[in-house]
Computed example of a mutant assay.
Amino acid sequence: MLEDRTDHTSAFREPNAFALSRKVFASTGLNLIEVSGQDAAKLLQGQLTCNINDLSASQASIAGFCNAKGRVISTLLVVKSLASFYLILPADLLDTVLKKLRMYVLRADAKLHDQTGNMHILGISGLSPEFDAPTDNFAIGQIPLTTVKLPGAWRHLLLGTSDQINEFTGLLRSRYAFESGSLDEWRYQDISTALPWFDISQSEQHIPQMLGIDQLGGISFSKGCYTGQEIVARSHYLGKVKRALFIAECPQSSNGVINGCKVLDSISQQSMGCVLTNAAWAGINRALLVLQIVDGLPKNLILDDDYRTPIAIISDQ
């Protein structure tokens, strides 16, 4: 049984779990690495924050892939298949993760494959229970494609070949009137449910707890050693995590928001943290911020940009 699968995203769920429009998202900003071989599980158990042995054909997990200092190189969604594991991650970090994971293969019977051209990742919103879709966070179903429930609002990722995806997408559009959604909207919904995807500008900058990976059930504190484990465990047991993840909003503007931009206290001009990731949709720029929590929830925040753009927290992890 997976550790701590409590839904910590209830504070920012949609008022109605099925309130999202029925949409198909051909682009999600995510790519896929397949890890195969007899030692695939052993390799991943020694590198990722989640407990690989807890995964099954019906349960995936989010995880962090850390460096030796406990800083997250990339967040991953780990899905177990019949003969291998799928690592779903931001497209911007695929080459980096492949290169760094291959350093740990050595003589192990494990192979890493970039499956970008073979396996496609489809985003779906509004896939109601009539499709027999999984309902629990990170649960896996087959309808008939591999389907993973994302936290919070009623959204799923579907994995399949190009032909399988095209056939299923055609069915959704013709029979159930699903519309097409944009990448910006999908990323906006990811941020709204505090899924901590980020690009290379934020790689190796934060420990997993700062990204809320523990709140999403993606850190095992009992499975044993993995790269960065000492720092992650020490931060947990000694209560030394001084930053946390927040969902924030600011008006959409032509200048946009830069990932990694500093966030300041507008009164003291003190740096309070940074923008992890952001997406603009429907006139609103929504962002995930990694902010100091030493003196309670931060207020009166602005971005350290040319416009000193005000940014307001709307929810925290």
Rank of each mutant, 00 (worst) to 15 (best):
T146S: 11
A17F: 02
A11W: 11
L82A: 15
I284Y: 09
L276Y: 10
Q164F: 09
S235Q: 11
N31A: 14
V72R: 03
D92I: 06
P208Y: 07
G46W: 00
N31W: 04
G296V: 00
P208R: 10
Y307M: 15
G256D: 09
D265R: 00
D114Q: 04
A19S: 14
K23L: 12
L158P: 02
A110N: 08
I124A: 04
W154G: 14
D132V: 03
L183E: 08
C274F: 10
P134Y: 04
S27F: 05
A194C: 14
S254V: 14
V148P: 02
E130Q: 14
S36Q: 09
Q115F: 03
G228H: 06
A11L: 14
I284A: 10
E34Q: 15
S21N: 12
A139H: 07
L87V: 03
H156K: 06
G256K: 12
Q270M: 07
L195M: 15
G228V: 10
A248I: 08
R107L: 12
N67P: 03
C66I: 09
S266A: 13
G218N: 05
Q189G: 11
I213H: 01
Q164D: 15
A60F: 09
N300F: 12
M103L: 15
D184G: 00
P208V: 07
L159V: 06
S235I: 03
Q142K: 15
Q269E: 10
G256H: 11
L183W: 01
A287F: 06
K111S: 11
I73L: 10
S220G: 09
L94P: 05
S266P: 02
L264N: 00
M103C: 08
T96P: 00
R71W: 02
M272A: 10
D304Y: 11
S84A: 15
S271W: 00
R5V: 15
A68Q: 13
H156M: 04
C261F: 08
V275G: 01
I88K: 00
Q292R: 11
A312T: 15
G64E: 02
L172I: 04
G296I: 01
L77D: 07
D306P: 09
L122T: 06
L43P: 01
D199M: 05
Q59I: 09
A26M: 13
Q229W: 02
D54P: 05
D306W: 05
S58C: 08
M119T: 15
G239W: 00
G37F: 09
Y237W: 11
L276E: 08
L276A: 05
T161I: 07
P310D: 12
I140Q: 02
G283I: 04
G212E: 00
Y237G: 01
I165C: 10
C250G: 07
V263Y: 10
I140A: 04
D304W: 10
A248M: 06
H8L: 13
T116L: 08
N67C: 09
M210C: 04
G126T: 00
T147F: 01
T96Y: 06
T49Y: 01
Q164I: 07
Y307R: 15
M1C: 06
C261Q: 13
I62G: 09
I88Q: 00
D114F: 02
D265T: 02
D214K: 05
Q164C: 09
I33A: 08
A17M: 09
W197K: 01
Q270K: 13
L245T: 07
D4H: 13
F18R: 12
K262R: 14
A26T: 08
I207Y: 02
I73K: 06
T116C: 08
G181Y: 07
L195Q: 12
Q189N: 15
K80N: 03
S128L: 07
Q317R: 14
